[in-house]
């Protein structure tokens, strides 16, 4: 369970998170929508401790992310995150990209790590690309590799930060299909996305962020079908 309690966060004088309260249960798929600068991506990077917070706390299975005593490296193996930029490691093959962290962080043997990496890559449809260098692949393939790389750490939660935003339109589908597959397998996921159709389909709940505040959260039918917040109504009208 991820518990976000009254989290505040500023960059300089700009407050990007103005007291967020949110609980994500095991097995739940939560999507976060909202305009640029609404704080949705910042929240994700705070959840896995890449960004410090100014107030409040975030608990992952009871462990406080920003507590000094928390071993962040250990915690992060529980929290997979995939970014808008694919961040493929260009000097490693697809297989090596996925094997690296399990070997160095989890201490898996080469054989174990390879077996696991092949499994994850096959799962996202890249079983044929093991020996290829990522720069030779399309953006969609690189992003699917990044997903496999995160999954190879056997995370209990996956955070997706606008993972289709940097893709050519014709490549968005293959990545969304991968996310749908993970959702159907019961992975706990928080997806920040601009893909409304996708959000509507896969989510258990959808949250709308506006100017650092979670303005509305509801089941997708309610949020998209009968939005209450005026800003959300404007937002949905503009994205349709």
């Amino acid at each position: 369970m991820i518990e976000i309690q009254n989290v505040r966060k500023s960059f300089g004088s700009l407050e990007v998170l103005k007291g967020i309260d949110l609980t994500v249960n095991k097995g739940e798929v939560l999507t976060i929508i909202g305009g640029s600068g609404s704080g949705k991506s910042t929240l994700l990077t705070c959840i896995n401790g890449l960004e410090p917070i100014d107030a409040g706390r975030i608990l992952v299975d009871g462990t406080e992310v920003h507590a000094k005593s928390t071993n962040l490296n250990k915690l992060r193996s529980k929290l997979g995150i995939v970014f808008q930029q694919f961040n493929a490691f260009p000097h490693l093959t697809v297989l090596e990209n996925v094997m690296l962290a399990p070997r160095k962080v989890l201490g898996l043997s080469k054989e174990k790590a390879e077996e696991n990496a092949v499994k994850q890559l096959t799962h996202v449809g890249l079983g044929e690309k093991l020996g290829v260098y990522p720069t030779r692949m399309s953006g969609g393939q690189q992003q699917r590799m990044a997903i496999a790389r995160a999954l190879a750490m056997s995370p209990e939660y996956m955070l997706f930060d606008e993972v289709t935003s940097a893709l050519d339109p014709q490549l968005v589908g293959e990545v969304l299909d991968t996310l749908r597959m993970l959702a159907s397998e019961g992975m706990t996921m928080i997806c920040v996305t601009h893909e409304m159709k996708f959000a509507r389909e896969v989510s258990d709940r959808v949250a709308f962020f506006h100017k650092g505040v979670m303005a509305e959260i509801a089941a997708p039918e309610a949020l998209f079908g009968a939005p209450k917040d005026p800003e959300l109504q404007k937002f949905l009208a503009a994205t349709h």
């Binding site: 896995n48 890449l50 490296n73 250990k74 992060r76 193996s77 995150i81 970014f83 930029q85 961040n87 490691f89 690296l100 962290a101 160095k104 962080v105 989890l106 990044a146 790389r149 995160a150 750490m153």
Partner: peptide
């Protein structure tokens, strides 16, 4: 973002630099 990606996979700063 390369270092960030490594850190998000649980690597220490030294590991991210080294590998």
């Amino acid at each position: 973002t390369q270092t960030r990606a490594g850190r998000s996979l649980g690597m220490t700063p030294v590991q991210a630099f080294r590998y």
